[in-house]
Amino acid sequence: MAVRMPHWFRQIWNTKGLSRWIFLVGLFITLVFVVFAIFAPWIAPYHFNQTAVDGVKFPKLGSASSDHWLGTNDQFYDIASRMIWGARTGLEVVVMSVAFAGVIGVPLGLLSGFVGGWIDRVLVFLMDAIYAFPSLLLAIVFAFLLKNTLGGGVVAAALSLTAIYIPQYFRVVRNTTVSAREATYVEAARAIGAPPLTIMRKYLFGNVVQSVPVLGTLNAADALGTLAALGFLGLGIQPNEASEWGYDLSRALDDAQAGNWLPAFWPGLMIVLLITGLTFVGEGLNEGINPALRRRRLQKVVFPARTAGEEVSS
């Protein structure tokens, strides 16, 4: 991987104007949120679950001040702290759900595509059935089911999102495997006596996972939206477990109707920014990795003037 990183990065760098800027802007936004997430305890003035400092309660719906940069909301929380801690929650859930989905979906797709036969047919049917459900509905069902066993925490939220994305990895990997299975190098691997597991591990895996990072970033953006939707419906993470923008947004709606729209504006902005950032990164990766989309910058050919000496004839 260490050898490959600069290679694909150079490919993205060499793509034409707009798509390169999209990638860089996306990368910048995402990195800012990553910094928020990692250093939340140090950046945020208060804990996400804090409603008082030194025994003094925060004001309800307080306006912006030097104590509360963005004011407080109707649950006495400091909005700025909630926003910064929210980045941690969002990225944790997104990374976990995408990682779970990949860890389950990729091997299943590899197996299904390589082995074929009835295993393939059953898995494809199952995955298509899951995929056919509206993703939010599916997430709600899983959130309900997991609430009793795992509670309303980050892990439960991540797992309820995982189920939505498994079929996507499965499909992409299965389809690339089906075509890669016929490649001569796989036949060559059989010819040197490689058992099926080795063929999948050493010959197919490396060649079929190349589209997974793109899918991962695009799914991450989608997962964040779904997480916010779950929180908005009150089915996601509970406010005392972690700070979650979707929940804050739903709490702030009544106040917005009453004329105080700032408590709703900030979580909304956060959701939109991070989704945009992740989507941009995904699209940038896609153009860098997918040769069909890639249009490289080509220097115009300039013919040097012919030197007179070349034209000597006998």
Binding site: T184, Y185, K202
Partner: peptide, 26 residues
């Protein structure tokens, strides 16, 4: 299965398209 794979130490193959016959990531 395994018996057939073991045979490949004695019988080997060279392919038409050398580019396709090598795993691009090895």
């Amino acid at each position: 299965g395994a018996e057939l794979r073991g045979l490949r130490t004695d019988l080997q193959m060279v392919f038409q398209d050398p580019h396709a016959a090598l795993n691009p990531s090895m």
